[in-house]
Design a protein around this nucleic acid. Sequence first.
DNA 1: CGAATAGTTGACCGATGTCAATGAAGGTGG
DNA 2: CCACCTTCATTGACATCGGTCAACTATTCG
Lengths: 215, 215
Amino acid sequence: MHAYTASRISLPSHSAQPGLPETFDPAPAQPVSFFAAGAEIYAQGEKAGAFYQVEFGAVRIYRLLADGRRQISAFHLAGETFGFEADSTHHFFAEAINATGVRVLRLATGAEMARQLLPLALKGLTRAQEHLLVLGRQNAIERVAAFLVDMAERQGGLRQVELPMSRMDIGDYLGLTIETVSRVFTRLKDKGVIRLLNLRSIEILKQDALHCMSE
Amino acid sequence: MHAYTASRISLPSHSAQPGLPETFDPAPAQPVSFFAAGAEIYAQGEKAGAFYQVEFGAVRIYRLLADGRRQISAFHLAGETFGFEADSTHHFFAEAINATGVRVLRLATGAEMARQLLPLALKGLTRAQEHLLVLGRQNAIERVAAFLVDMAERQGGLRQVELPMSRMDIGDYLGLTIETVSRVFTRLKDKGVIRLLNLRSIEILKQDALHCMSE
DNA sequence: CGAATAGTTGACCGATGTCAATGAAGGTGG
DNA sequence: CCACCTTCATTGACATCGGTCAACTATTCG
């Protein structure tokens, strides 16, 4: 049982992005906030009133038990959206994993907003439910394999996969300890399924084998 | 690793309910379908085009792995709504646990529908994410305690709680085996926290202790 | 270059799964 | 209405996967 102590590492600079070239956004330009690695985007219990789109970097969404055990329910990479809640309160914590920029989208109320948000909420629901299957019924190898397959898909299905998060983050996402995550990485490496380019990026050598392991 | 073999036990009678007294429903009356215990309401892969409100009985939503391992992602009791999907395909199975009546609500498209559906989707998302914490980071006693607390709350917070589902269903919801569920029930009974009135209903004797155990 | 942080590896332990036997409950037909 | 049979739940003995603790190594950052 490992304890996790949350700490506000640095404050975001809530200012609009000035002069960077950007892809065209049909919605009226919204401010982009920057967060340093480990910075809190919002906390459980805080008032919710916006949702967020990742411009660059990566975000972890998590919850804590009283004794510090942490469960990360989702990672969000560039282009993905998070932060909507059932009521006007955040039920989870959101933190930047690395230096991260998020576009803050103020919540309009009304049917048009619901129309935009619903598909995102439903996609998130499906993702969460699929993750339940992993946590409830898969063993350590299957969990890590499923995680790598998912990360690979979200990065365009390339052989090389960037893992912006630490082993502890991966463990807290998969319901495992860092030691077990590490051991499974080693086993996959020894089997020739993956290659560790460095701590934060892997190459998938046997796509089929990995898919197979993830069930 | 236990195998679960799904089987269509009986077909639903897709007919409107004729002469039963009903509580007033502001929406135009929709047909109610009846399902026998174990009957399939929809299957993974089927075309989705409606959502469902439980009139009476109970429903399990689940997914299977290739080798038969099953994860129940949610139970739905009377009054609750389920069946909406991110795209037009069901990603899960839905089965009646007991004799169950569900009101079938055909999906209108458009903003007004989204406005109605969004809160339900968001509520479901929050529930699923909270369940992730249970599956990822809590031990067997905590899981069962959390389950009982949840069931009690959803039944009005009474001391006596009805469990419409089998031990296997509970196990497949909590990521445990039936043996472990049974052993935890016995431990809670021996500690005087609960009393087993019969297989499908319990009495909570120490509400605080149970809350405490569920973290 | 050195200290601090993150990751890996090994030895051991315990919680939960597996397998098997027993007991209780519910449904069906005589 | 009862007896039997089937299904479901409980209990025990044992195995195993993953957690814990500790030592060591690699990486990053000042």
